[in-house]
Amino acid sequence: MTEKSTKRLPGRPKHAEEDISIQQTIIQTASKLFMEYGYETVTLQQIGKSCSVSKPTIYYHFTSKPELFKVAFTTMLQNVSRLTSHMLDQAEDLESGLVCLAEARLGNPHAEIETMLREAEPFLDPAQIQDIRAAEHGIHEVLATHFQRAMDQNGLQTDDPYFLAETFSTMMLMGNREDNHHKYGSNLSLGKKLVDLFLRGAQ
């Protein structure tokens, strides 16, 4: 076998397991940086430096910065979807499950998805945007399933469960306002307040 045929591509990991581990590290690092600084500010060099890999390594795993953003963002949303499902499945009832979700969400505030997508959208192709939207809808579908179940058991008044899911998610954006944590104390206190308002309204 010639030297040319055995030469590795720049940045290519040596083993399959290492390959997967490096890819996951890049995704996790990119997610944190994108969430903290937004799309345009973060560079591939910055991501590489933060996870100790070269820029060629990033390009080996991801064809472009927009593709990395898409994968990082959809991975994050899919993780939120799994966590949402787990918390609601394990809870004694819908209200206690929503309070646990609210506490977790308020404890990890981040930029609103619409704001982030608006910034990144000019750089993303339609398929990438669609993938991100599908991952976001996955979270709403999990919530909607539990809301529908509560309606069937007369635990909630009849309504569009998906609309309720979107409404609940929007209320969680309260966590992005730092002053709310000073006003209402702990994330649990604010979470209980928001869930109570969501379930019972402001009668």
Score class of each variant (00 low, 15 high):
residue 12 R to T: 15
residue 14 K to H: 11
residue 18 E to A: 15
residue 22 I to Y: 01
residue 24 Q to S: 09
residue 26 I to C: 05
residue 29 T to R: 10
residue 29 T to E: 11
residue 33 L to R: 06
residue 33 L to M: 14
residue 37 Y to G: 01
residue 39 Y to F: 15
residue 43 T to S: 15
residue 44 L to K: 10
residue 47 I to Y: 03
residue 52 S to A: 12
residue 53 V to T: 04
residue 53 V to M: 02
residue 54 S to T: 15
residue 56 P to F: 08
residue 56 P to Q: 08
residue 57 T to V: 07
residue 61 H to C: 07
residue 65 K to E: 08
residue 68 L to E: 02
residue 69 F to P: 01
residue 69 F to T: 00
residue 70 K to T: 15
residue 70 K to D: 07
residue 72 A to T: 02
residue 74 T to V: 12
residue 76 M to N: 09
residue 77 L to D: 01
residue 80 V to H: 08
residue 80 V to S: 03
residue 81 S to Q: 15
residue 83 L to M: 06
residue 84 T to D: 04
residue 92 E to L: 09
residue 92 E to G: 00
residue 95 E to N: 04
residue 95 E to P: 04
residue 97 G to I: 04
residue 98 L to F: 05
residue 100 C to I: 02
residue 114 E to K: 11
residue 115 T to C: 03
residue 116 M to K: 05
residue 120 A to E: 02
residue 129 I to D: 02
residue 136 E to Q: 14
residue 141 E to G: 09
residue 144 A to F: 12
residue 151 M to P: 05
residue 152 D to C: 06
residue 157 Q to F: 07
residue 157 Q to P: 00
residue 158 T to P: 00
residue 159 D to F: 12
residue 160 D to R: 06
residue 163 F to T: 12
residue 166 E to V: 10
residue 182 H to N: 05
residue 185 G to L: 08
residue 190 L to G: 01
residue 192 K to P: 00
residue 193 K to H: 09
residue 196 D to S: 12
residue 197 L to E: 05
residue 198 F to R: 03
residue 198 F to Y: 15
residue 199 L to S: 01
residue 201 G to P: 05
